[in-house]
Simulated scan of single mutants.
Amino acid sequence: MTFGFAPSSAASINSSSESASRLGRMLEPSEWAAAGIPLLRSPREVVSGLHSRHRPTPSTAVVAVLDHEERLTASASFARRPIPADGWEFRNALLAHLRRVIPHDLRRRTPVRTAVLLYCRDGDERWTEEDGAWMWGLRDACTLHGLRCGAYITLTRGGWQVLGEGRGGRYPGSGSRPAPLGEVPSELGLLTPRTAGGAAEPLRRTAAR
């Protein structure tokens, strides 16, 4: 004789509740665009600089803090844990790394520094639920660290894309060879017209892997 147990209805409810909670901790592109995220003046230089410093591979996140002139103040990179995409988990990871590389600005009335997130992943440039969870996590981590929430950028084999803005380029991509700092790679000639120009000089480099 074989005895079995039917799945607990309470367990099913808990699972559904957890899924609903995770879905609530993500932002749609329209929500992100409506949040008043400041535009990067020189997204190409920011992306290229972070790519050269941290050499991200798929499932690597790079969080960077920029001053009011869009110069790099601090940055950290880390691998995404193999868990379901959850904005709360991403928020905690981002906040932990921000605390390691730069003091908070919670005593200021208004933020003077901006945090941006570059996430290297597989797939194409289209928004995913994982991107939505990273957006939610970045916004919440910035609030808790006294920073202005800045751009969320994906890095895929096709290039980079500033989500919610429609700006991007073909170089660098997740499979690109990082260029030495200070050099302008020849591949920049392949950039799409959507990218912006300008220069951003790094003030300090702090990387945590």
Rank of each mutant, 00 (worst) to 15 (best):
S8M: 06
F90Q: 03
T195G: 02
R121F: 04
L106H: 06
G132E: 01
N14F: 14
L118H: 04
G150V: 09
S75Y: 02
A74F: 05
L94H: 01
W127G: 00
R80C: 09
G4T: 15
L203A: 12
T114W: 03
L94D: 00
H68G: 14
G168M: 01
I37T: 09
A85V: 01
E125T: 14
V46F: 06
W88P: 07
E45N: 05
R170P: 04
M26F: 07
W160Q: 02
R71Q: 10
E89L: 11
A133N: 04
L66K: 02
L27Y: 07
Y171P: 00
W160D: 02
G159E: 00
S77C: 12
A33P: 01
L95P: 01
L118Y: 08
F5A: 15
P38E: 07
L94N: 01
G24D: 01
A151V: 12
R209D: 12
V63G: 03
G137S: 10
E165A: 15
P84C: 06
R170F: 11
L147N: 00
L50T: 03
L138S: 00
L106T: 03
A20M: 15
P43F: 02
T73L: 14
R113C: 11
R113E: 08
R25M: 09
T154I: 12
V47M: 06
A196V: 06
P103F: 10
F90I: 07
A85N: 02
R25T: 14
F78D: 00
R170D: 01
D86E: 09
S59C: 14
R157V: 08
E69M: 14
V65D: 00
L144F: 09
P84K: 12
L181K: 09
H145Y: 04
P29M: 01
T114F: 05
C142Y: 05
L118G: 03
A200W: 08
L95N: 02
Y119M: 06
V46I: 13
F78H: 00
V112S: 12
H145T: 03
D124M: 08
N14V: 15
H97G: 04
R107T: 13
E125I: 15
A207W: 09
S9E: 15
I37A: 06
I37D: 00
I13Q: 13
E165H: 07
H97F: 11
V184R: 14
M26R: 14
G4P: 04
G146H: 01
T128N: 01
G137L: 06
T192M: 13
R71W: 06
W160R: 06
L155M: 10
A79S: 05
A200G: 13
E18Q: 10
E187A: 11
T195K: 01
T206F: 09
R108P: 03
A61L: 10
T195P: 08
S21K: 12
A34H: 09
T192A: 14
S15N: 13
L72N: 02
E165G: 03
V112I: 11
G24E: 09
T110D: 05
D131M: 02
S15D: 10
G36K: 05
A74L: 05
E45F: 03
A199S: 14
A208F: 13
V162E: 06
S176W: 04
